[in-house]
Design a protein around this nucleic acid. Structure first.
Length: 176
DNA sequence: TGCGCGATTCTC
DNA sequence: AGAATCGCGCAT
């Protein structure tokens, strides 16, 4: 039994969404029609106006405006002029927040992940809550919360000690 | 209008 | 340790 994560799933506190996305299945239908699925095992939350690590802390721009939009959409931006990074928006329209998808099983690293799934700017602001080119599915066998570890986010020291220290990164620590 | 740096990754 | 290389924020 599989179900597509709906808007209500993403219309919740960003930390809850980031944690609950661990173990969910990222799904992508390629141009060829082939469908790729892999479980999410690393996420990061970027939440609200005050989070200095978030693009949204400086206000809305052409790049980050999707973060201010409705939940359950793809926020994709070019990092270091080289890599596309894939986020999913959370919270209601007007409140800037998103979850960065850092890793899935077998593919570690947010830039590598988008390359593997062939995700680029064409998906920016696209709806993820229905089966199409890109969506997320729940799967049988819930992941035990005890296997999910919260740590500080990666590469955000520029945000200052307070925000850099927030344990808003979630990693699936598999036993064995 | 220009400059520095970033939610990274790969190679030397 | 450095390169690749595009946008944004902030200073000229």
């Amino acid at each position: 039994m599989q179900r597509v994560l709906n808007k209500a799933f993403f219309d919740r506190p960003t930390l809850d969404v980031a944690r609950d996305l661990i173990g969910k299945q990222l799904c992508r239908r390629l141009e060829s029609g082939k469908i790729i699925r892999a479980r999410i095992c690393g996420t990061e939350a970027y939440d609200g106006f005050e989070d200095r690590a978030s693009h949204a802390s400086k206000g809305a721009t052409t790049r980050n405006v999707v973060m201010f939009g409705p939940p359950g959409r793809a926020y994709i931006y070019l990092c270091y002029g080289v890599h596309w990074l894939f986020n999913i928006t959370t919270r209601e329209k007007g409140y800037p927040a998103a979850v960065l998808i850092r890793a899935v099983e077998g593919v570690a690293g947010p830039g590598r992940l988008t390359k593997h799934f062939q995700i680029s700017s064409s998906f920016n602001d696209q709806l993820l809550t229905r089966v199409g080119g890109l969506w997320v599915e729940d799967v049988d066998g819930e992941v035990s919360p005890t296997r999910i570890v919260a740590t500080p986010r990666v590469g955000v020291n520029y945000a200052g000690a307070e925000w850099a220290a927030m344990p808003w990164r979630f990693v699936w620590e598999k036993q064995e």
